[in-house]
Design a protein around this nucleic acid. Sequence first.
DNA 1: GGTATCGGATACCCATGGGTATTGAGATGG
DNA 2: CCATCTCAATACCCATGGGTATCCGATACC
Lengths: 212, 212
Amino acid sequence: MSETTGPRGGPTPRTRRDEVRRRLLDAAVRVFAERGYADSRLEDIAREAGFTKGAVYSNFGGKQELFAAILRERSEAELDAVTARTRDADDPAAAVAAAARLVARRIAEDTERGRLGLEVAALAARDSATRDIVAPLRRAQREAAARSLAEVADSGGAAPAVDPRLAGLIVHCLTNGLSMEHLADPEAVDAATVERALATVLNALLSPPASG
Amino acid sequence: MSETTGPRGGPTPRTRRDEVRRRLLDAAVRVFAERGYADSRLEDIAREAGFTKGAVYSNFGGKQELFAAILRERSEAELDAVTARTRDADDPAAAVAAAARLVARRIAEDTERGRLGLEVAALAARDSATRDIVAPLRRAQREAAARSLAEVADSGGAAPAVDPRLAGLIVHCLTNGLSMEHLADPEAVDAATVERALATVLNALLSPPASG
DNA sequence: GGTATCGGATACCCATGGGTATTGAGATGG
DNA sequence: CCATCTCAATACCCATGGGTATCCGATACC
C-alpha cells in the first residue's frame, strides 16, 4: 500500500544538493533578518527551507559558517543593484531624481534587506572576523557610489563640486542612516521623506556651493 | 576572628539601593554594547557591577526590563549632549567646523555609544515594543538637530536653504550612518574623514545651492 | 536591644538549542 | 541486481543561562 514509490512508479527523486543549499541560504536570510543572528534557531531555518537540521550540518559547518556564507554571497549580489542605476538619464537633475526615488523605494519596501544589513553591521561592530568580511564590501559600495556620482557630474559638464570619494562616503552613509531611521520610525520616515532627503543631498553634492 | 565588622569596628555598611541600581545600569550598558543584547549574560553584568544575579532581579524585572531601563535613561541623557553645542561660535562657518569636529571625535572615540546605538537600532527594527520606546527619542533627536541648524542659519542672516526638519533628518541620519561605517571599517573611515563628510554636508545645507 | 522588614547572595530548576552519532533511503557503478 | 557511497532524517547529548525559591545579614522601627 504505502510504498516509497509514487502513484506512477516514480522512485521519489531526491532534491539536488545545489538546490538544497540554495533553499537553506534563502531561508537563513529570511530568518536571520526576522529574528537576528543570536535568536535564530537552526531548526527553524531548516524547516523554513523544507528540511531538517541534518541538511544544515551536511551543507555548512554550523551556524557561523552558514551566516558567513550569506555574507559572502550577498557581497557579490549587492554591488550589481547599486551600479546600474543612472544609465538611462543623461540630465543630472533627472538622474538625481531617479536615483533618489529608486533608493527610497528600496528602503521603504525591502525591509528584509535593511534588517539584515543592520544585523550585519551590529555583528561587525563587535566581531573582528565579521568585520574582516564586511569592511571590503562596504569599501566597494562606497567606491561604486563615488563612481556613479562622478559619472553624473561629468555628464552634466560641471566639475565635481567635492571629492568623489568623499561624496561616495556621504551618499553611502546617508543611505544607510536613512534605512536605519525608517526601520526605527517607519511612520515619520516614509518613502517620500527619504526621497526628499536623498535628492537634497545629491543635488547639493553635484552643484557647486554658492561662495559666501 | 573573622567577624563581619571591619578592622575599626565599622558595621560593614551596605551600599545604597540607588547606588546598586546605578552600577548595575552602567555595567549593563558596557556589557550590552560589548556583546550585544542576546549574548549578554545577566551574571556577567552583575559581576561587572560587583554584585550577583540576585541584585539584578531585586532591582529589575528581568533582562528585558533592564534593557528597557537603559533605553529610558539614555533617552534623557542623549538629548543634552546634542543641544548645547553651537552656543559659542556665532560665525556659521565656525559653528559648522566646531560641530563637525565634535561629532567626529565622539564617533571615533566613544565606540561604546556607537555599538549600543547600533544594537538598539537592530532590536527596534525587529521588535515593535523596542520601537515604541526608540521612535520618540529619535524624533526628538532629529528635531534638536533641526533647531540647532535653524539657529545657526539664522545667526548667519541667510534664510535657511532647505526645510529645517529635512535638514535635521539629513544630519541625524548622516551622523548615524557615519558612526556605523566607522564601526564597520575603522581604518578607512577615521575621525578626519568623518569630520570632512559632516562639514561638507553641513555647509551645503546652510548655504543656498547655486541655481543652475 | 529586640523584632520586622528589606534586599542581595546562593543554590537550584529546566527549557533551549547548537552540535554529534547513527540510521536508512536513494543515487551510483559494476 | 547487488555492493557501495552519499546525504538528509532522527535521536540524542549537554552546556548554557534566564528565572525562582530560599537564606541570611543589614537596616529600620519601636
